[in-house]
Computed example of a mutant assay.
Amino acid sequence: MTSRTIVIAAGGTGGHFFPAEALADALVARGHHIVLMTDARAGKRSSGVFAHSPQFVLQGAGVAGRGPIRALRAGVTLLASAWKARNLLQDVQPDAVVGFGGYPSIPPLLGARLMGRKHPALIIHEGNAVLGKANAVLSRFADVIATSFPTVAKLPMGARTVLTGMPVRPAIAALAGDPWQEPDNGVHLLVWGGSLGARIFSQVVPAAIARLPDTLRTRISITQQARADDVEAVRQAYAGMGVKARVEPFLNDVPDLLRSAHLVIGRAGGSSVAEITTAGRPSLLVPLPIAASDEQTENARAITDVGAGWMIRQPDFTAQTLATRLQDLFTAPDELARAAAAAATLARPDAALRLADIVEECLQLSPSPVPPPSSKTETRT
């Protein structure tokens, strides 16, 4: 296999960074050289696959939801970063640039396009069921758009798309096919709220558990991610009820937690949905209400449409509503089992390998061409 240099553009939250690392692992395993371009929020990586690769930190700022003056300043910053990225890319001379959405991916891909007619292959990965604002800008330059969901709203007409799924970490991919176990002696509830936890879960979940009958509450054990300043209050709330609970600001053993979970409560980000479905676990999803394109609602709908879980909008996510739903589910394990089986049908544990295949196809290292849009991904406006 011919070794090539591939720039990966990703930053911000783990939702963008975890799939980027999974792709990098797959490409390095195939003998390719990796370069990371990221933003200050992610910073340089001291561990993992990128720790042994060249890294560049670029400035940038999101423009969604800003006033006109701040949006203008952010746009100027992005353009300046794009020009800096162009100069860096001229030195690196990559064969391809792969972006994972969010504004940190704009400067490297736009900078690559500014290199002129001999620019590298440009690939973007869309992790949600709605094309993100950054990817919408970049889609006009991309050679191919890889998607996580079969149906993606706001894809441009004529875009070359292929369904790969969302790349997940190898330890998550290894969960595929692991059977969901019926809660005989106890119920394990996993609550996560995104990269930094979510205050709404810290407020609602303990209050909902307190409303459950004693006979059910004593069977529940909880692992919950919470904001650092909420951790102690949530711990005390569960301790006061006599509920076995582990509450942390960051969960570093997600694969093990998913393996033992009977139900997952959390946001509906693309990476979270991919990890839940790869593990084949039922979920109760509360979409982030301030997401720029309301993509989390569409992600959650992809789960509920196949019976793999349930969605509660944040305004309706109250202690009483959640308590009622938990009591119904935990006293009807057959419903949880059906949802777990449905979730498993959405698993794409080989997504990182599929995306690596697409990169190599764009570099003409694979004999099979990138399929046309109609054969893989449905476009919905």
Rank of each mutant, 00 (worst) to 15 (best):
S3H: 13
T5F: 06
I8K: 05
G12L: 07
G14E: 04
G15H: 01
F17L: 15
F18P: 03
P19M: 07
A24Q: 06
A26E: 11
L27M: 13
G31S: 11
V35G: 11
D39P: 04
R41F: 05
R45Q: 14
R45S: 04
S46L: 14
A51C: 06
P54W: 10
P54L: 09
V57M: 10
L58H: 12
G60Q: 05
G60C: 12
V63T: 13
A64K: 11
R66G: 02
L72E: 07
A74E: 09
G75R: 01
K84F: 01
R86H: 12
L88P: 03
L88S: 05
D91C: 09
Q93G: 01
V97E: 09
G101T: 05
P107V: 09
P108R: 14
G111W: 11
G111L: 12
A112E: 02
R117A: 14
K118A: 13
P120C: 09
P120A: 09
N128E: 03
A129E: 10
A134G: 03
N135A: 04
F141L: 15
A142M: 11
D143H: 15
S148M: 07
P156I: 07
T161M: 09
L163E: 06
T164P: 04
T164E: 02
A171N: 10
W180R: 07
E182P: 03
N185P: 00
G186W: 12
H188E: 04
W192M: 15
I200L: 11
I200W: 00
S202L: 01
V204Q: 03
V205M: 07
T215F: 08
R217V: 05
T218D: 06
R219I: 06
S221C: 08
Q224V: 00
Q225Y: 03
A226D: 01
A226Q: 02
A228E: 14
V234E: 01
G240M: 08
K244N: 14
F250T: 01
D253S: 04
P255D: 04
L258V: 03
S260Y: 05
L263Q: 00
L263V: 00
A268V: 02
S271H: 02
S271W: 01
V273H: 06
E275Q: 13
E275I: 06
E275G: 10
T277S: 12
A279R: 08
L285M: 14
I290G: 04
A291G: 04
A292L: 09
S293I: 04
Q296C: 11
T321W: 02
L322T: 04
D328W: 14
R338V: 03
A341V: 06
A344M: 05
T345E: 12
A347E: 00
A356G: 13
V359K: 10
C362Y: 05
Q364H: 15
L365E: 11
S366R: 15
S375P: 00
T379C: 08
